[in-house]
Amino acid sequence: MPVQYSLSEKGNPSDQTAPKKFYTNAKSTGEVTFRSLSKEIAGGSTTVSDTDVLAVLNDLTKALAKHLSEGRIVRFGDFGSFSLTLSSEGAETADKFNSSMIKSAKIAFRPGIDLKEMLAVVKFEKAK
């Protein structure tokens, strides 16, 4: 099934006089919950239940948060990796920088080979 998209008209924030252009936005067609994902994963196995998978996914979330908060990159093999990225104010010199200048942290995900291959072949259609 193709990914649906919509269009929105946006101006150029650095040039208010420039004509507005249309840009695309991916449109969600629903969501998948942890519970339904665990049932789907368990459905491909004869040895684990959806409850087992759900327990593992919950523990995975906790372990991911723990390791990221300790500054580690968390690699999930061919799935991809997670790491922290930071945004901060600038300092005139390295000596003048301190941690209070850090304004936000975000989690970066870098997809592995399977997800990169999916991105290369995904199809798109305009949402109705």
Rank of each mutant, 00 (worst) to 15 (best):
K103L: 15
V122G: 08
L86S: 12
L57P: 00
S83C: 11
T47F: 02
S38G: 00
N12C: 02
A105M: 00
S8V: 08
H67A: 12
S83M: 00
N25T: 13
L37S: 01
I102K: 08
E125Y: 07
K20F: 04
L119F: 15
V48H: 00
G112V: 05
L64M: 05
Y23T: 09
L68R: 15
K96M: 08
D95R: 11
K123G: 02
S104H: 01
D78A: 03
A55Q: 01
R72L: 14
P2H: 09
N25W: 09
S104R: 10
F109S: 04
Y5H: 02
T33K: 03
F109W: 12
T61M: 03
S88V: 09
K96E: 12
R72S: 12
R110D: 11
L84Q: 04
M118Y: 10
D50V: 11
S6A: 14
F34G: 12
E9W: 11
P111M: 10
L115C: 08
N98V: 00
G80T: 03
A120V: 04
K96R: 04
G90W: 05
E117S: 10
H67W: 12
G30M: 04
G30K: 05
A120L: 07
N12S: 11
S69C: 07
L68W: 14
E125A: 05
E31P: 11
T61L: 01
A55E: 04
N58I: 07
D15T: 01
L37R: 01
P13D: 01
